[in-house]
Each structure stands twice: as C-alpha cells, then as structure tokens.
Design a protein around this nucleic acid. Sequence first.
DNA 1: ATTTAATCTTGATCTATATCAATGGCAGTT
DNA 2: AACTGCCATTGATATAGATCAAGATTAAAT
Lengths: 256, 256
Amino acid sequence: MSIHTKPQPSLCQHCTMSDMRFCQVNKSKVEPKVKYHKVYNKSDVLFGSGQIFDAIYILRSGSAKSSVLANSGHEQISRFHYPSDLIGLDGFDNGSHAQSIKFLETSSVCRIGLGELDKAMVNSASIRYKLLQGMSHALNDEDKFLLSLNNMNSAERLSSFLLDLSSQFENRGLSGNVFDLSMTRVDIANYLGMAIETVSRLLTQLQNEDIIEVEKRRVKILNFRKLNQCLLHEREPHILLTAKTRQLNNIQARVA
Amino acid sequence: MSIHTKPQPSLCQHCTMSDMRFCQVNKSKVEPKVKYHKVYNKSDVLFGSGQIFDAIYILRSGSAKSSVLANSGHEQISRFHYPSDLIGLDGFDNGSHAQSIKFLETSSVCRIGLGELDKAMVNSASIRYKLLQGMSHALNDEDKFLLSLNNMNSAERLSSFLLDLSSQFENRGLSGNVFDLSMTRVDIANYLGMAIETVSRLLTQLQNEDIIEVEKRRVKILNFRKLNQCLLHEREPHILLTAKTRQLNNIQARVA
DNA sequence: ATTTAATCTTGATCTATATCAATGGCAGTT
DNA sequence: AACTGCCATTGATATAGATCAAGATTAAAT
C-alpha cells in the first residue's frame, strides 16, 4: 500500500488520513499542545467498561491491551494495540464501551470526539471509508484469531503470535527480528488461552530449538522459516516435542 | 431500545432503518419483485472468500454460516446469521471478502450496493449510525465469544451456545423454548472448537439431566435455570459430570 | 539497603477432551 | 428394495495442556 503525499482531510492537527490504517502524524507541523493529543503512563486506563462513549482514539505511540470482563469476573484480553490502531470502536454498539483499554507502557493517543467524527464522515468519503475499513479490519483480525484458537495447539498459537508481533513491528518501520514484548507472560497466556506455565515452557523450547532467543521481555527471532513451520501444520515430524515426549525423554535421561 | 414509528430513510423497498439492528420489513408496501431482494436455497453460497466486495446484505429470512479458511485448508465457522443480521461487513477491509457465506436453509436477503450505501451514509445520520452500530455489535459479539472460548469448558460453551440461540429466536419473536437447529453437529463442533463426539455426548448429557430435550435438530429447553448454571462457573457441585467421573461411574455400575 | 510483591521458570501429576473405532438411522439415488 | 453417503451416537483409550508445587529472579516500595 503506497503512502500518498497529497494533502488529506484531517481530524486533528496530528493526524491525516493518508496511511493504511487511519492516522498518520504530519511531522512538518506538530503542535505539542493540541487538545486532542494526550500522553498516558503505563497501567493508565483510557476508558473502562461501561464508560460513556464520546470519542474514538488513535494510538500514536506505545501500546495497550483491550479486555472484556466475564460474568465470572475473569478478565479476557481481546487484542493488543499498536500505533495507528483505532481504539474505541466497540462503543458504537450501545453508546457505552464494552471493553476497557489499559496502556502497557508510556503511550500517546489522538482523541476524536464523536461530533467531529460524524462531521468528518459527512464531508469526506476518505474518512468514511477509513473508518469502515478500520472496523472491518478489526473484525477480520478477530476472525483469524478465532480460527487459530480453534484449530491450533499451544505451540502453533504462540508461534503465530510471535510472527504476528514481528510483522506488526515491521509494518511500523521497526525491526521485525528483535523487539520487546510490552505485555507480561500472564497477558500473553490470557490472550492466547493457555496457562502461563505453558507460555513459559514453549518460549524456552523455541529457544532450545534455536528458533528464537528470549531475554526477559526481549525477543529475537533467529529462524523465521522454522517458526513458520510451527504453525503450518507441518506435523510429521513436528518441530516441537510434545509434553509427553519430553516427559519420556526426561525419564530416559534419568535412567541412563 | 424503542421502535420508532416515524418514517425512516430506507435503502430498499423492503427495508427501513427503524429496528434495532439495521433492517425492518415494511409490511405495508412489500413489492415482491424488487431487484434487491433474492431467495437462496440450502447450501447456496452468497459470496465466497476472495470475491470482490460490491454490496452488503441484510438477511431477511432463514439462516447462514460465515466461515474463513485456514492456510491448512481447514474451514472455521466464525458466526451464524439470523434475520436482520448485516452480512458482508468483512469486505470493507481490502475490497474483497475475507469470509464466505453459505445458507443453512432456504433464505432471502436484501442487497445494498456500495454506491447506494455510501450515498445513504452521506444523506442520513441514522444510516451512518446503524452501519457503525452493526459493525461494532459484531465486534463485541466476537469479543464475547472469544472470551467463552478461552475461559469456558466444553459443557459451558455448549450451554452458552444454546442460550444464545434461544435469545436470538426470542428477540425475533419466535419461541426461545423450542427451536430447530439449522446447522449440523459438525457445524456446531467446528464453531465451538470441539470434537463432534463431544457435542453429541454433551447434548445427551444435558438431556439426561432433564435440562433440555433433543430430537434430531429440534431442541427444547426444559430448565433455563440449570442451563444458566452450567455457564456461570457455579462449579461446586458442578451440574454436569466430568468425563472422568462418568467413566468411574460406568465401571462401578458394571462391577455392581 | 532491606523487605515485599510481582514475574518467570521448571518439574510432577492430573484430567478434560480429542481421537480411534464401531454401529445405527435417515435421505437421496439407482 | 438395495445401495451409498451423510449424520449422529456411544464406548474405549491416549494425550495436550492444566494444575499443583517450589524456587529463582527482578522490580517496587519503604
């Protein structure tokens, strides 16, 4: 997707509509004190579940998680957000937010009030389209994720997660080979629907196979080909050992 | 949410924008031969993955499943559709459909071309809002579903599915107590991420507990309270026996 | 600087559910 | 009426990954 250079309708001084998601910083005229632009710290909440819906946001820097609450009180992370993501689209449904958004590190957002947004939609086909596209993209993303939950085992889901993160960073001009996880292992486990112990084990396993290198939150992908194989259902012989096989190997090692 | 009686902008002769989702049949002036209205048979495909996106649809009668295809070739059902559902929203993302839609029984849809839709969005705040609301609703629905996949066991997921179906039918003025499943057990299993054998076993189990009655595709809910308990994580004592316990009971029965 | 609290890793065991296998019923076709 | 294919049920077994338990490491707070 190419980046257009001609002027585009914009919703705030920081954002134009020219990039592939929704928002792009216009570096030539950054005004640091624009009312629509705000900085948050790690663990800050952008909005909580049930809060009234009066604006959508574009993540400009940092990262965030969005989660929904089960009746049981269990928190389920539904996605992680990176710069240029649209946030708050869940609010159109019934006028209040279904999700809550918590920042994972120091981050900044552009805020677009509903009134302005509606005006912009009337006046600009481009903005209408970008908004619908953003929501549609989120929907498709979630469908793909659902697919992975239902059809992949833990190793595949984790590999898929790492590869997805990698391309997220790459798409944003950062390194897709080495990056820092902004979320805890608990968050990853919650998101991928597995126990934190499983995440930990799989990460060290991938490391032992020389597929990745993990040092705290820092991940380095050493072998994309193998990492991809982990999720392409290339099962015989599977790259990663199953828990059972590992167990047997352990016993054999001890006996020998 | 109240139903407005004043005239509303409409996209086709069959649809106004007055109900809570998007579409409502205007019974006073049905024109049977409107070009936007089409009938499909069971197993017909509305559109397939990769097909160009040129319209959205509103399901008027019948039911459909939408599915995405994994690299592995595996089909994953991402949702079931019932009358008044908006279909085709996945296409805004990149101009072609990510999903494919297959009807589960004789069904009819209203078709709204993209050109008309865009015109309508410019002219009507109500239509802008309904469309965004529809997408947001789909997004929230999927988030909730994701939550259930990650946090519920098979029995809970199936109970949740049945209760959801029940309220879908109830919301549409049909019986929430007795209804026919339009999908196969294979579809249910695929959607809920479990083996077909598990679906079958759980259904007979729920029947043995006098919570539901199943006869082929016909489901009758006998005890909503108990069915709800199945998913409220009211675990001690859990209503449904685990596979292990069943197995033990079987053995004990045989010994005795 | 020391305490306290998160966070992460690794090992051992348990169990929910997939998988394998067999059978029965029903709908469409010849 | 017999054949074929799909759909559903039920039983026996295997296993991926959860859970339980214990430490180790790092970060935050006093």
